[in-house]
């Protein structure tokens, strides 16, 4: 059976200088980029273009496929609907207006600018995230989080969660499939049962999954104990970032800050 795992993991194996870069550097720079995008004022098209070019150059350099990244970056698009109202709630010069019945819908230039800015910021942020996840093993990212002083318990939970995600989602999918196979209908007979019954069936599936997960975690724990786990989450000592890596991170962050600053100055 085909695995859904490929869909769960964004990592794309390729040889590139970006793949080889330390995960801490990549994580911090991505964060700087996303923060910079959030700080940009509405309508800072030049700055947005600069950030877009940076991201696209990196995507190109990393050999992960510009088209694939673009396609995957559409995930946040549906949420844009929430921002549609920006079009019609900003004061500004009237561009378009419709009347129907007692109501009037008016689109202003400021509204269009605000809406498009949110859309582009969101789209670029998603691409930055995709880039990070495409060139960084999840395990490396976890290590980076630990080195960046995230509490070890949290990192360990994320690690276990990631490890068992595949197993649990497989289990859930097999259950769904078993249900689907028996979701039959007779010709000319309304099928599907009541809505509360359907919800109850799912609730019990969730309960079943919970018990199986719990029992699995107990087996995992015993396996850990039998290999000497004593409750302390230890990890190997990690090397600190090299001066070059620090410099690169600082430089990148400063550059992003400069772009933001300039866009306020000249915007």
């Amino acid at each position: 059976m085909a695995t859904p795992h490929l869909l769960l993991d964004r990592y794309i194996d390729a040889e590139s200088p970006l793949h080889a870069q330390d995960a801490r550097v990549k994580l911090l720079l991505t964060l700087a980029l996303v923060v910079a995008l959030a700080l940009l004022p509405a309508g800072a098209w030049v700055a947005l273009l600069v950030f877009a070019l940076i991201i696209w150059t990196a995507v190109y350099q990393a050999h992960i496929g510009l088209l694939r990244t673009m396609r995957r970056s559409l995930v946040a698009l549906p949420f844009a609907l929430v921002a549609v109202t920006l079009l019609i709630t900003r004061p500004g010069e009237l561009l378009l207006s419709w009347s129907f019945g007692p109501w009037r819908l008016a689109i202003t230039d400021a509204g269009v600018t605000a809406f498009l800015s949110v859309l582009v910021k969101s789209w670029l942020s998603v691409q930055a995230m995709l880039l990070l996840m495409s060139i960084t093993h999840f395990a490396d990212l976890l290590r980076a989080l630990r080195q960046l002083r995230l509490p070890p318990v949290l990192v360990a939970i994320l690690g276990f969660a990631y490890r068992y995600l595949f197993i649990m989602t497989d289990e859930a999918q097999r259950m769904l499939r078993a249900r689907e196979c028996r979701s039959a209908a007779l010709p000319g007979q309304p099928a599907g049962g009541s809505i509360t019954w359907r919800a109850a069936v799912v609730g019990r599936m969730v309960g079943t999954l919970f018990i199986r997960a719990y029992e699995r975690s107990e087996r995992v724990y015993v396996a850990m104990l039998s290999r000497g786990f004593n409750g302390n989450l230890v990890s190997l000592d990690e090397r600190p970032l090299s001066p070059n890596e620090r410099g690169f991170t600082l430089l990148g962050t400063a550059a992003a800050a400069a772009v933001v600053w300039a866009s306020y100055l000249f915007g």
């Binding site: 318990v153 360990a156 939970i157 994320l158 690690g159 276990f160 969660a161 990631y162 490890r163 068992y164 995600l165 197993i167 649990m168 989602t169 289990e171 859930a172 999918q173 259950m175 769904l176 599907g192 809505i195 359907r198 919800a199 069936v201 799912v202 599936m205 969730v206 999954l209 919970f210 997960a213 719990y214 699995r216 975690s217 107990e218 995992v220 724990y221 850990m224 786990f229 004593n230 409750g231 302390n232 989450l233």
Partner: peptide, 30 residues
Amino acid sequence: VGVELNERQVPLMGVMAAFIFAGQMLNFPV
């Protein structure tokens, strides 16, 4: 968590996070 629970909770919480993640996939037609 450090005070009230024991170390057993770490694998448990990880697997439970995976469970919630997978549990969110279980849907029913409305």
